[in-house]
Design a protein around this nucleic acid. Structure first.
Lengths: 111, 111
DNA sequence: TATATTTGCATAGTATTACGAGGTATCCTG
DNA sequence: CAGGATACCTCGTAATACTATGCAAATATA
C-alpha cells in the first residue's frame, strides 16, 4: 500500500541523516538506497529530496562537496557534520517517542 | 522531548479515527483522551483538532451530532461511519507499513 | 547509428496541514 | 464575583511533499 504524502513530512530529515551518517552519499544514490533498504517502499522524488538536502545543508547538518569522477562527471556528495550527528540522534529519539505515542493510541493494550 | 509539528501531519486522521471508532466522542474529550492515553505525549491544539474533524466529516468518515446536556450545554459528538471504518483500517495498515519502512532505514539490522 | 533509458542535479508552483492567536459562551469553585 | 475549566470555532502563517519542468551526460538497446 502506498503511503499518503503527509505521512512522510517530518520523517524525511531523519531518514536522510540516517543514510548520510553511514557514508557520504549523493542525491541519486540516496534515492536508490532508500528504495533498496526499504524493499521498494520509499521512492523519493527529486522535488522532495533535493530541497530537503538543501535545507539540511543550510542548517549546517550536512555539507555537500562536488566530486569529479574519472569520467569527468560530477556528483555532489553530502557529508554529515558533527552538528548533524547530534541532530540525527535527537531526531531518531524523537521519532521513537512519536512512534510509541501513535501506537499507544492505535493499538491500546489497555483502555 | 517534544516532537516537530511536521511529524504529526498524516498521523492526525488515523489517531482521531482510532479514538472515535471505540465510542462517539466530542472535540474537547478527544484532546483529553489523546493526552491521557499517550501519557501526556499528545497535547492537540484546537486549531489542529477542529479543522481535522471538519475535514473528516466533509469526507464522510465521521458524522457530528449536536447533543444537549441536562445543563443545556451543547457538545458535538462525532460518530464513525462505515466509510470511516474502512478508512481507519486502511490508514492503520498504511501507518504500520510506513513505520516499518522508516525503521528499516533508521535501524538497519543488515546493510 | 539512432533512440530510449538511466543517471544526476535543480527549481517554481501547488496543495495540504499543524499551529498560534483570537473570538464566543457556559459551568463550577473558592 | 473572579478565575479556571469546559466547549466550540476560524483566520493567517509556516513548513514541506510532490508535480512538472528543465538541463545535461552517460549508457543501453534497437
Amino acid at each position: 500500500m502506498r503511503y499518503g504524502r503527509e505521512l512522510l513530512k517530518g520523517s524525511t530529515e531523519p531518514l536522510l541523516l540516517s543514510l548520510i551518517t553511514r557514508q557520504p552519499m549523493y542525491g541519486y544514490q540516496i534515492i536508490k538506497e532508500l528504495e533498496r533498504r526499504s524493499k521498494g517502499y520509499f521512492t523519493f522524488r527529486e522535488g522532495t529530496l533535493y530541497p530537503a538536502l538543501h535545507r539540511l545543508e543550510e542548517r549546517g547538518l550536512i555539507i555537500g562537496r562536488w566530486e569529479r569522477l574519472a569520467t569527468g562527471q560530477e556528483r555532489r556528495y553530502y557529508h554529515i557534520t558533527e552538528q548533524g550527528q547530534h541532530a540525527l540522534e535527537e531526531k531518531v529519539t524523537e521519532w521513537r517517542g512519536f512512534s510509541r505515542a501513535v501506537n499507544s493510541i492505535m493499538q491500546p493494550e489497555s483502555l
